[in-house]
Amino acid sequence: MIRAVMVMNTLGKLRLSKFYDFQPMEKQQELIRHVYAVLSSRPENVSNFVDAESIFGPDTRLVYKNLATLYFVFVFDSSENELAMLDLIQVFVETLDKCFRDVCELDIVFNYSKTQTILDEIISGGQLLETSSTEVMKTVEEITKLEAASSSSSSSLLPKSLVAWRQGQ
């Protein structure tokens, strides 16, 4: 299964993290720090795989991809194929790219919950569920529509103008 997904920038700032086995917050912090320490020390043009057993325990591997200012990191165990995971990072990034049109770090910073939704559509409970970015986008758009519809109808307590004003912000 996939154990964790992390997105952080090249300065070590965390942009997204999801652990599929419950980890207490302090442990998560520690793991993320270790991962960053390893990634930042790797030279360019080397393989995308890192021996993760010293960080995540036995039977774990880590694959990462450095795109622009971001590291995309997937941690998984022997039930997954290394190259397939590398492809999966590609799928994830492609989807983000479709969603935000030429995705950059800021898009991910300001669209935290949308990014989470995309990730949840690709991986659920540590299992890979969807590998087509088009399919994922379709679902994400449906969800966005649903959200928009529900949030505009529910806040009837406030005057219409105020709602519009707040949404316009």
């Binding site: 919950s113 939704t117 969800i143 649903l146 959200e147 519809a149 529900s150 949030s151 109808s153 529910s154």
Partner: peptide
């Protein structure tokens, strides 16, 4: 909540 957005959050 009946609101999908709230539920999702």
């Amino acid at each position: 909540s009946t609101c999908f957005h709230s539920k999702r959050i």
